[in-house]
Amino acid sequence: MIKTLKNNKVSNHLMLIVFSLLMLYPVIWWVGASLKTTAEMSSPSIWPSTPIWENYTKGWQFSPEFTFGRFFGNTLLMELWNVVGGVLTSAIVAYGFARINFKFRGALFSILLLTMMLPGQVTIVPQYILYNKLQLMDSYIPLILPHFFGGGAFFIFLLVQFIRGIPRELDEAAKIDGSSVYGIFYRIVLPLIKPALVTVAIFTFIWSWDDFFAQMLYLNSVGKFTVGLALRMYVDQFEIQWGRLLAMSLLSVVPSVVLFFFAQKQFVEGIATTGLKG
């Protein structure tokens, strides 16, 4: 019995290691390519003949005025607001849709879902004109604000599904103990959907990191650029500074990886703290 369990463990590890390596091939390629000269990029070998560390140092030293430190600072600050806004408001809105019967709930929920189905390409220009009229150009507000309004249909719907997975008897028990709907939300539901909230935080972070189109439209001064925008400056019409581009893009993934690494521990803790009874 113990032996098969052990074997099981070993084979599990083996499988996971092989699978991880397969998925990690891009990193290996990426690290190698980020140390190459542009002329060497075309060679099939993964590793450079002599590593060009300059891609990192010069790449970081973006221009005489700004380093990538500035861009990371800008992006992380924006992200902090996005994540706080997204996690906070999406849970509140989701609870309303999932647990409370109010007039026009069905209709409003359908509208919520419909807003996801219209491709953003056709609303972005009217939206830009709107923000332009509000004189919010060259600021992070147009980028952050939507996260404070429920964080978008995706997250609201996600949390609605999670909240509906929580046994109602918990609500009822709390109600008997004299809790209001607000109390139930805060003391019962919120702790129970922690894994889902962590998911919201991770996705908000990663997706706003990637959302270059809106950033490009709303940020004008280079001093306010995000990492994503700064990276795009390395891609000229004819000449791409491949070494620096790849080096800095690799660095730009690091915050997301670190965040994910630490945040996903919450999934493990998730079980311990919920302690649901069937």
């Binding site: 408001t89 509140i92 809105v93 609870y95 309303g96 849709f97 409370i100 019967n101 109010f102 007039k103 709930r105 409003l108 509208i111 919520l112 807003t115 609303t123 972005i124 009217p126 939206q127 709107l130 604000l145 939507p146 404070f148 309004f149 429920g150 609201i156 709907v181 607000y182 939300f185």
Partner: peptide
Amino acid sequence: AGYIFISPWLLGFLLLTVWP
């Protein structure tokens, strides 16, 4: 209670989304 809870989204929808 319902409208209080969904108000963040509803406000954002009316102010920023519906016009575009």
